[in-house]
């Protein structure tokens, strides 16, 4: 643990985002080496084993759930939601940081985002994928989940567009699509770099497919820039809308304690708060183990911490207001 003096020294000069002495070449070298290394480090296998173990627990739980029914979660009347919906809201929230970093910060021309946006976006995608599973598993009859989508069918029955759960379907699927596109578009030059640098045929072939013919021409870069901006423009409202729609699940209901107007900002703030927290949870070990301290500098951590502080205060205010409203409404 470096003392405070070290931390201050490690800080890059003002207006500089990454450590001194980096060039495009060295940045590329360092990042590509993480992926194209010959010897996958042991801790990678260890982490993979842990992750895989957790995945197996998840799969076992899902099998159990499908075999027995949602009753195993201990949910009951009068509040028949619980485990799954909590998880859904949580995962959607986690996903928010990626979009915020890639879209809003791009529009605001915050250069420092470039160091962390890619893995934050990846995190978003996985978070949304996780989030998407829970509403389906939450159903009493999960195998009929597709009834929530408006698709032409012989029964001529469509979903109920008055229901916030249907809004959820649209909000989350739009969010997942835009996030995926954003991530992929941003990844194109990187994939091309990996294609060019890999020494084996199979990775070269696979990266080649994924790079979609990227050659790094000025034209490519110009189109890439425009596409990124457009996608950022699309994604920006989503940052605010997705969790707002999720919060509608509760606010539209007339359940005392849920039926409340401050839930949308409360949810969005909470989402960004937890999302940035997750970015840090991932970034801090990453920069350590891969020696990326020069790329993800303390400046990044500080900026993230500022966002955390701001959204944390909003969430704290919301908690206080929630209690106050409950007391004021005589619903203690």
């Amino acid at each position: 643990m470096p003392d405070e003096q070290d931390l201050l020294q490690a800080e890059p000069p003002k207006r500089e985002i990454i450590g001194t002495g980096y060039t495009f070449g060295t940045v590329t070298d360092q990042i590509a080496s993480v992926v194209l290394t010959k010897r996958t480090p042991l801790f990678w296998f260890a982490s993979f084993a842990v992750g895989f173990g957790l995945l197996l627990v998840f799969l076992w739980s899902v099998v159990l759930l499908l075999a027995k029914g949602v009753g195993i979660w201990g949910i009951r009347m009068p509040v028949a939601w619980g485990f799954a919906i909590t998880n859904f809201v949580w995962w959607i929230g986690i996903g928010h940081a990626g979009t915020l970093i890639s879209a809003i910060l791009l529009l605001l021309n915050q250069q420092w985002r470039n160091s962390i946006n890619r893995f934050a976006e990846a995190m978003t995608l996985f978070a949304v994928a996780s989030a998407g599973m829970f509403p389906l598993l939450h159903l009493g009859r999960p195998w009929l989940f597709y009834w929530l989508f408006p698709y032409p069918n012989s029964m001529a029955v469509q979903p109920n567009f008055r229901s916030p759960l249907v809004w959820d379907v649209f909000a989350v699927s739009t969010y997942a699509t835009v996030s995926l596109l954003f991530w992929f578009v941003g990844l194109l030059p990187d994939l091309a770099t990996l294609r060019d640098r890999s020494t084996h045929r199979l990775p070269r072939f696979l990266y080649g497919i994924l790079a979609m013919g990227w050659r790094g021409s000025a034209r490519h870069w110009a189109s890439h820039e425009v596409a990124s901006l457009l996608l950022a423009g699309l994604a920006t409202p989503l940052v605010l809308s997705v969790h707002t729609v999720v919060s509608f699940d509760f606010t539209i209901a007339i359940v005392p304690g849920w039926h409340s107007t401050f839930f949308p900002p409360y949810f969005v703030a909470g989402a960004i708060y937890s999302g940035f927290a997750m970015v840090l949870v991932l970034a801090i070990p990453l920069r350590k183990v891969y020696g990326l301290e020069g790329l993800i500098t303390l400046r990044h951590l500080q900026n993230s911490a500022k966002v955390l502080l701001a959204t944390g205060l909003i969430v704290a205010y919301s908690y206080v207001m929630e209690q106050f409203m409950a007391w004021y409404g005589g619903n203690t």
Partner: peptide, 18 residues
């Protein structure tokens, strides 16, 4: 019914059974 249980949450009389 796919079993979202939303109706039951939203029933002020708590007469729905799942």
């Amino acid at each position: 019914c796919v079993g979202t249980r939303y109706c039951s949450n939203n029933c002020p009389y708590k007469v729905r059974r799942f």
